[in-house]
């Protein structure tokens, strides 16, 4: 088995230390950092995402794999040039104002991370103004809004309105989700897409990029 295959397999098995040490070995053997990322680490985590979608891997295992990926990325990051960002896309994510539920949002964040996206987590009870400020600061390709309460779903609409009025929606895809949120609701408030669960969220973003 090639070293790249070993790295990919270690990511799939969630072996955190091994991914770190094998990635280091790959660099020492003269491999290019970007190549290690794209041909070893990412193929590994993509298989993890597929297996999760088929119920062959479960949440605790995916969390281990995401940590293993992170160990690999931490190892190679210092050797990547600025242009070769290790992430495929940048995503800002958070739970809307007056809503303090973060479980679903954290699962979505985990799936994004596991699929090689950079995630900026704003936490819970995030106001429309804070989301808008984060968009200006981080310039992400995707914004993810979460709400678990029917009473806080209108905050999603408010946030999108503010983003539109500030002209920040240009080049930005907004996704919404959370237990009471539906596809129809997403359309109604002007979100670009809706995801029913964490895996669907990650797949949708993968499809866009």
């Amino acid at each position: 088995m090639s070293l790249y295959e070993q790295i990919s397999l270690a990511v799939q098995k969630g072996e955190i230390e091994e991914v770190g040490s094998l990635s280091k070995q790959a660099l020492e053997e003269g491999n290019n950092a970007l190549d290690v990322l794209n041909s070893a680490l990412m193929p590994g985590i993509e298989i993890v995402g597929e297996k999760f979608g088929r119920d062959e891997l479960f949440i605790p295992e995916v969390m281990m794999c995401a940590q293993a990926l992170q160990a690999g990325i931490n190892t190679i990051n210092p050797f990547l040039t600025k242009e070769q960002s290790s992430y495929k896309a940048k995503i800002v994510i958070g739970t809307v104002a007056n809503d303090v539920h973060d479980l679903g949002k954290n699962l979505v964040k985990m799936m994004f991370t596991a699929n090689g996206f950079e995630v900026i987590d704003m936490g819970v009870d995030v106001s429309a103004e804070k989301f808008a400020a984060a968009l200006e600061e981080h310039k992400p390709q995707v914004l993810g809004l979460s709400a678990l309460l029917t009473t806080t779903m209108p905050e999603m609409s408010k946030t999108i309105e503010l983003i539109n009025s500030k002209g920040l929606h240009n080049g930005l895809q907004i996704m919404v989700g959370g237990a009471p949120v539906t596809e129809d609701f997403a359309k109604e408030i002007g979100a670009d897409f809706y995801a029913d669960n964490a895996i669907e969220a990650a797949n949708t973003v993968k499809g866009m990029i």
Binding site: T150, T151, M153, P154, P180, T182, F185
Partner: peptide, 9 residues
Amino acid sequence: VATGHGDKE
């Protein structure tokens, strides 16, 4: 009976 359309709840 919540659906997110608060007015109907």
